[in-house]
Design a protein around this nucleic acid. Structure first.
Length: 1118
RNA sequence: GCUCCCGUAGCUCAAUCAGGAGAGCGCCAGCCUGACGUGCUGGAGGUCGGAGGUGCGAUCCCUCCCGGGGGCACCA
């Protein structure tokens, strides 16, 4: 067919154009409900459940998310094809503090207003609008990537279904005494005015000061120091000091420190010696300079002596506590229990000290700061220092770099702040905790954290026999276990407006109008299971769980508890119960806690909140969504899809999220939410910085899809996913002003409205700002690109064209199809050698791809599929059958094998490149509706199990096609072909020139090669080929030695070139042989190496000797 | 400070149990070969970060050094 002829009906276009197929393929999936999860009534059907690591709605997805999503899609498509009842649950996360911060920031930037200006209701409404916008955008991105999620099950952590689960989980943990409210030092964000978790803090090195302050000793006696010196980076906190501490036994502690330093010096490698020596010297000097004073102070501490806090002139005690290290600073330390975590611990050891909070939530000082009340903490800091100096109490001020924790959300320094917060108890509890209460999987564990640690221990099994394991690299189990082992209680309250409001109503008894009515209400509620409660001790604040309907009544008669300061906290189970209880409780004087829950609390429930727990049948799903309850003989979604299978994520949320899902899944349902944690690589930008929404260095996958196609992007992501090695992705932005590419690794961040917005860069030519992640209104959005994705597009084009070639040779579709020969089973004997060979390769390739997927090795799996498709099918099989396809007598068998090979390749490639494979599959189905070798394959047509490739069965390797002898014969044929091609290239013979060749080979090899001679001729462009064990080398022929074979190519001899070429080969062979002979000449090697290694080396020696002999002969005949 | 990982071709990354170093891109040369120039054929290119050690044998195991990154903790 001439190129300019119009394509026949149904013929594929010449060039792969992703945009022409992606939309239609997506539509066909959606229309068929290809990814819907419908619980199978058969309890023995294998399930495969992946819960999407819910992206948060602060912004759009970048390449890092694309990697995460593609990995999940790869696994779920594969499992769906393999026949599993598969659910990939999509959804988004409200990301409490992050989203509120983004919206608040925008409010301030665009309208100059704060949340207090517009109020709680209006702010929350704006956040919902933001959420709607970004959730839609995220879904668009995921669908464009080809994500085969159960889209009709889309959930959001604050939707009614998930909210019901959050409320129930909180109620149950509260009821079990695993949630309590306590006085804790939290990390306080003064800007957002909320507590933030440890992992929401970024520590930055900043320039700071060390302020040394003198505290005069009250009534010093002769021989005693008249003051102590303490140092601090935050001088204003001295206003909250309640003591000064000194080590109780300074000499012993100093000696211990000196010994440690000396040990370190002894072990110090060269570079660290000088520093270690200096440290030892410094410590020795302290025995004279500091120790006497410290010992005096230790005695004074034991005596109950005091110092005077400057400025406020408050006497405070000297206490003895090992927290004060004689080897550091002055050896004394100020104790501020309300504003320093370590001091807080000291405070607990000396309860009489109390704690003085000097901060207001907004970071100004409160009335406890006396004359400094009302000042911002940074203003107060300066004034305190100035006043100390004026009072002569300032020893010195040092400039120093300090590590300062900043809130990741507001970027302002966090303050340790004493406040009441809600916590989940992570540690072991007396009697243990009940996991999966009321389920068939109910069992006990020492505590929540321990339960999660045990789950990954290797020996533990859940009641259903499941355990947790990390893939492909088990080392992340150590991260997980190490974090859990600390068993630090989890602060779950946030002082925000956006989130799940805690459903607890509280009051002190003093505030309760009618105790009898309260007792009655609690009795009724607890008995009905709609209320549970805790009381907090008036003095210690220690919580006590109410057990049984009458517990509160008894406590109120107890003089220890029945006092006005005792606080009662009641949790209302759900919204229906709230309708009953809220009014009466509030009338009694109880008020709802204003806090909301940490986002990770609702995220931790994701594997079952999405499935309708605790009541799938009653779950208030959205309009158009399927119900989650059991019906039509099918189990509920919860029963079908919990416990799940695999969690796919980057390593950064192993502790934040994975561990918490494990704990809360075990607590609620008694089983693991998944058994496999697949930790994939993170995508880094060109500078090696991990892409993240907050860093603003993300790249929009839609840009890459627009430029190269979704399949190309997926191909490259899969190919990059090797182990857990992070991947650098150099990216250019296309300037919206000049159209020129801008290398982002070197581009300047732009300053817009006085601040550096994340993800906004400056055009190097126009100096105008552009935005690469598309978050900012009014800033031009730049498309991004990276040439790393070209290989993906090239691969897809190759696949497209190979399929196109096959389809051009298969019967045309449509009414004329019946003119072609019908499908018929093929006997092995009817197949040509290359047919049997490719069937063997397909079997081997299928097994290899499957094995690599099972090993969580997407790159290996894709590599195997690519090698099979490109290396075997395209480079050899298609070329080998071209002559047969031109001959109607031999074409039908070749066509049938070709259709089968294409079928198998498309199935194997589908999880990697779903769009192009699905499009080609449709065309293959039209032209070869029945496919197979000995029997028709399942899943090829609508009649045999559904027309979509996404739902077609995964190939099963048929090892009976593997034939080692045949493979060896074909391999010899390929080697001879390559030898001829190599000679042609070396001698510059144009491919169009037909040559005469001879091969001398031992009889057996010669016989098999002769049977394949026509292939060598065709593939190497030969006019004639003579093979035998006695063929003569023609005069003037070049020679190539291939193992025991010698290939002669006539009429190309240029003696000088030939000599040079052979000499080079000889040199190489000699070099290798010499190394080998040296090895074999080593008696120790022969004696001590394994026999099979020695034998292999001997065989290789023989081979090299034969080759060398052939080369020598060739040289001799020149 | 503790701890983990990484360093292999110009680039981005592989290499199972220690036994002849690979892929893709890029580069060089040739090719308008009956689907594909987003292609085909051939080729060059590596002191496996450095130095020691153990082994018959080290890219691989051990120690130290250099360089890069992550996690945890702490800072009077």
């Amino acid at each position: 067919m001439a190129p300019e002829a119009a394509p026949t009906e149904g013929e594929l276009p010449r060039t792969y154009d992703p945009r022409a197929i992606e939309g239609a393929v997506t539509a066909s999936w959606v229309e068929a409900g290809a990814f819907a999860a419908v619980p199978d009534p058969d309890p023995d059907r294998r399930r495969y459940v992946v819960m999407m690591p819910l992206p948060n709605v602060t912004g759009a997805l970048h390449m890092g998310h694309a990697m995460d999503n593609v990995m999940q899609d790869l696994l779920t498509r594969w499992h769906r094809m393999a026949g599993d009842d598969t659910l990939w649950q999509p959804g988004t996360d409200h990301a409490g503090i992050a989203t509120q911060a983004v919206v608040e920031k925008r409010l301030l930037e665009l309208e100059g207003k704060t949340r207090l200006d517009i109020g709680r209701e209006a702010l929350v409404a704006r956040i919902w609008a933001w959420k709607d916008e970004y959730q839609a955008r995220i879904v668009r991105q995921q669908q464009a990537m080809g994500c085969g999620c159960a889209w009709d099950r889309q959930r959001f952590t604050m939707d009614p279904v998930c909210s019901a689960a959050v409320r129930e989980a909180f109620f149950r943990l509260f009821q079990d005494g695993l949630i309590y409210r306590g006085d804790r030092l939290v990390n306080w964000d003064c800007h957002l005015q909320t507590a933030v978790a440890d992992d929401e803090i970024v520590v930055e090195t900043v320039q700071g000061t060390f302020t040394y302050i003198r505290y005069p000793v009250l009534d010093p006696r002769p021989g005693e120091p008249d003051h102590v010196v303490v140092a601090t980076t935050r001088p204003e906190t001295m206003l909250g000091d309640t003591a000064v501490a000194v080590h109780p036994a300074p000499r012993g502690a100093l000696e211990a420190a000196l010994r440690a330093a000396e040990d370190k010096l002894a072990a110090a490698p060269g570079k660290e010696r000088a520093a270690a020596e200096a440290e030892v010297a410094r410590l020795r000097a302290r025995f004279d300079s500091h120790l006497p004073g410290l010992e005096a102070l230790a005695r004074m501490a034991a005596d109950g002596r005091r110092v005077v806090l400057p400025l406020l002139e408050r006497p405070i005690p000297i206490v003895a506590d090992a927290w004060a290290k004689p080897e550091l600073g002055s050896g004394c330390v100020k104790i501020t229990p309300a504003h320093d975590p370590n001091d807080h611990e000291v405070g607990k050891r000396h309860p009489a000290l109390g704690a003085i909070n000097i901060l207001n939530p907004d970071g100004t000082l409160n009335q406890n700061a006396g004359p400094y009340a009302g000042l911002d903490r940074f203003v107060a800091r300066k004034r305190v220092v100035a006043d100390l100096e004026a009072a002569g109490r300032l020893e010195k001020v040092e400039e120093r770099t300090i590590e300062l924790g900043h809130s990741d959300r507001s970027k302002t320094p966090v303050e340790p702040y004493l406040s009441k917060q809600w916590f989940v108890r992570m540690g072991d509890v007396p009697g243990g905790v009940v996991l999966g209460r009321g389920t068939p999987r109910e069992h006990r564990a020492p505590g929540l954290a321990q339960a999660a640690i045990d789950a990954a221990s290797g020996t533990w099994r859940s009641p259903t026999g499941r355990a947790l394991a990390f893939h492909p690299d088990a080392r992340y189990q150590a991260t997980y276990t190490a974090w859990l082992a600390e068993k630090r209680d989890w602060c779950i309250s946030r002082q925000l407006w956006w989130g799940h409001r805690i459903a607890v109503w509280r009051a002190t008894l003093g505030e309760v109008a009618d105790r009898a009515a309260l007792v009655a209400a609690v009795r009724a509620g607890v008995a009905a299971g709609t209320l549970c409660g805790q009381v907090a001790h008036a003095r210690t604040g220690e919580p006590l769980r109410l057990e049984g309907p009458d517990h509160l009544a008894r406590l109120l008669d107890d003089p220890e508890w029945g006092v006005p300061g005792t606080e009662v906290a009641l949790c209302i189970r759900d919204e229906r119960a709230e309708a009953t209880h809220q009014g009466p409780l509030e009338a009694l004087g109880l008020a709802r806690d204003p806090d909301v829950l940490d986002t990770w609390f609702s995220s931790a429930l994701w594997p079952f909140s999405t499935l309708g727990w605790p009541d799938p049948a009653g779950a208030p799903t959205d309009a158009g969504q399927p119900g989650l309850g059991a019906r039509d003989g099918r189990p509920s979604s919860l029963d079908a899809y919990y416990p799940g299978s695999c969690l796919v994520t980057g390593r950064d949320i192993i502790t934040l999220w994975v561990a918490r899902m494990v704990m809360l899944g075990l607590h609620a349902l008694g089983d693991l939410p998944f058994t496999d944690v697949f930790v994939h690589a993170n995508i880094q930008d060109g500078k090696g910085v991990r892409m993240s929404k907050t860093a603003g260095n993300g790249i929009d996958p839609l840009d890459i899809i627009a430029a190269f196609g979704a399949d190309a992007m997926r191909y490259v992501l899969c190919d990059m996913q090797t182990g857990t090695q992070d991947i650098r992705l150099p990216v250019q932005a296309i300037s919206p002003f000049t159209g020129k590419p801008v290398e982002l690794a070197t581009a300047k961040q732009a300053v817009v409205r006085g601040s550096k917005l994340r993800g906004v860069y400056e055009d190097p030519d126009t100096r105008e700002p552009f935005d690469v992640i598309g978050t900012y209104e009014g800033i031009a959005k730049a498309a991004t690109t990276s040439d790393r994705f070209e290989v993906g597009r090239n691969f897809c084009n190759k696949l497209w064209n190979a399929a196109r070639f096959a389809l051009l040779n298969l019967p045309a579709p449509g009414p004329s199809a019946d003119s072609g020969p019908a499908w018929a089973p093929l006997a092995r004997a009817a197949l040509a050698a290359e047919d049997r060979w490719i069937l063997g390769r397909l079997a081997r390739g299928t097994a290899l791809v499957t094995a690599r997927l099972e090993a969580y090795d997407p790159s290996g799996a894709l590599g195997a599929a690519r090698e099979l498709f490109w290396g075997d099918v395209c480079d050899w099989y298609l070329e080998l059958i071209k002559p047969r396809l031109r001959d109607e007598a031999t074409a039908p068998v070749a066509r049938q094998v070709l259709a089968f090979a294409l079928d198998q390749v498309l199935r194997l490639l589908h999880p990697f490149v779903p769009f192009v494979s699905e499009a080609l599959w449709a065309q293959l189905g039209r032209q070869a509706p029945t496919r197979g070798i000995t029997a028709p394959l399942a899943g090829a047509t609508a009649a045999s199990g559904g027309g979509l490739l996404a739902r077609a069965p995964w190939p099963v390797a048929d090892a009976s096609w593997e034939d080692a002898a045949l493979e060896a014969e074909l391999e010899r044929m390929r080697e001879v072909t390559r030898a001829v091609r190599d000679l042609r290239a070396k001698y510059g013979v144009p491919p169009s020139k037909r040559l005469d060749a001879r091969v001398r080979a031992p009889a057996v090899a010669a016989a098999s090669l002769a049977g394949l001679a026509q292939h060598v001729q065709a593939m190497a462009g030969l006019a004639t080929l003579e093979v035998g064990d006695a063929v003569e080398r023609p005069r003037n022929s070049a020679v190539q030695v291939v193992g025991e074979l010698e290939v002669y190519l006539a009429d190309v001899l240029d003696p000088e070139k030939e000599r040079a070429r052979l000499e080079k080969q000889r040199e190489q062979a000699q070099k290798q042989l010499a190394a080998l002979e040296k090895k074999l000449g080593n008696e120790a090697f022969v004696a001590r190496a394994p026999a099979e290694v020695v034998a292999a080396e001997r065989a290789r020696q023989a081979e090299l000797q034969a080759q060398l002999a052939g080369i020598e002969q060739g040289l001799a005949r020149l």
